Computed example of a mutant assay.
Amino acid sequence: MDVSLYSDGSSRGNPGPGGYGTILRYRAPSGTVHEKEFSAGFSCTTNNRMELLGAIVGLEALKRPCNVTLYSDSQYLVNAFNQNWVAGWLKRGWKNAQKQPVKNVDLWKRLLAAKEPHTVTFVWVKGHAGHAENERCDALATAAADNPACHQVDAGFRA
C-alpha cells in the first residue's frame, strides 16, 4: 500500500499552546481516494514537539505495513532522517554532536517505533507556500492550538 502522509505542527509561543494537523491519503486500486484527518491541541508544548507528533499520529494510524511518503515543512523532522541525525543520536546514546542530550527524545523514540513496520520516505515542503495539503495541515494545527477547550496536556514536555 502506498500512502501519502502530510503533517504540520504549530505553537503559539515556544513554548505555548500548540497543535498538530495530519492528513493520510491512500488511492485504492479501484481509483477511489481514501483520506483521513487528525488534529489535537495541547496547553503547553513546542512547535518541534507538534511537528513530531503530527508524523507519529499518522504513522500510528496505519494498520499494516505501508510505503509512506511523509511530507512536512519541518526541517527538524525531515533532516533527522534524510541527513542521518537519528543514526548518530542512537550511536551516541541519544546525545547530539555537541554531546548534549537530544531534545524531545520521548517523541523521537515513539516516532522510531511508529515508523518501524513501514518504508518511509521523508520529503520537505516549503511552509506557507501554497502547498494545498501543507496549508490544510497548518489550518488543522493552528485551530487545535487556538482551542483551549480541547487542549490536552503534553506529558512529555519539559520546560
Rank of each mutant, 00 (worst) to 15 (best):
S72H: 10
A40G: 02
A114V: 03
G93L: 07
C150E: 15
S4G: 15
A28W: 09
Q83H: 15
D138E: 12
A139D: 13
S39Q: 13
D73S: 01
K103Y: 10
T45V: 05
A40L: 04
Q152W: 11
G127T: 06
A97C: 01
R64W: 11
P101Q: 05
L52N: 07
W108A: 02
S39V: 00
E35G: 08
V153R: 05
P17V: 00
L77F: 11
K115S: 11
P15Q: 01
F81A: 09
L62E: 00
K109S: 09
S74F: 14
D138A: 05
P65E: 10
V105Q: 15
G41E: 01
V123R: 13
R136C: 04
K115C: 12
W85Y: 09
V57Q: 15
E51V: 11
L70W: 08
P15I: 01
N67P: 02
T22E: 10
P17H: 02
E35M: 13
H118V: 06
S74M: 11
P17M: 00
N48Q: 11
P17I: 02
N134Q: 07
L62V: 07
S39T: 03
A129I: 12
G127Q: 07
P148I: 07
N47M: 05
R12I: 07
I23C: 07
S30N: 03
L77K: 09
K63V: 10
D138Y: 11
Y6W: 14
W94P: 03
Y26K: 11
S43E: 14
M1E: 10
Y26R: 08
S10E: 06
P117R: 06
A113N: 04
C150I: 09
G21N: 08
H151I: 03
H151F: 00
R12M: 02
